[in-house]
Design a protein around this nucleic acid. Structure first.
Length: 105
DNA sequence: GCGGTGACGGTCG
DNA sequence: CCGACCGCCACCG
């Protein structure tokens, strides 16, 4: 996973801290990476990842606990990967952040 | 260098 | 609980 910039590297480092079975929001990752108000940048950085990347990109959701991928299919993959780790989606595609959001120590 | 473009987020009605 | 708006800011053509 190439780090095109120090910012991307910081983002990838932070995303890698999210443990299995938990999720984080774009804004949360941005803040933890030392880049407040750069939630969109987190989206860009993850979008730029290769398929073979070890970064758990699929553990990142938007502030409403929903999958933000707009592209066909990729959203289904993200949901499947999360469910495989025990993350539960409501009928409307919501994840209860109260229950599954990662709380850094 | 400029302007359109988002894997976003907080607010308001 | 929605949808609409608006502010944000690095990318890329």
């Amino acid at each position: 996973m190439p780090a095109r910039s120090p910012a991307y590297a910081a983002i990838y480092r932070t995303v890698r801290r999210v443990p299995r079975g938990r999720v984080a929001t774009y804004g949360q990752i941005a803040a933890l990476a030392g880049l407040p108000r750069h939630a969109r940048q987190v989206g860009y950085a993850l979008h730029a990842l290769s398929e073979t990347s070890t970064v758990p990109w699929y553990r990142i959701l938007n502030a409403q606990g929903m999958i933000s991928l707009t592209r066909e299919g990729s959203g289904d993959l993200q949901r499947k990967l999360l469910e495989l780790e025990g993350v539960v989606f409501s009928a409307r595609g919501h994840v209860d952040l109260k229950r599954f959001q990662w709380v850094p120590r």
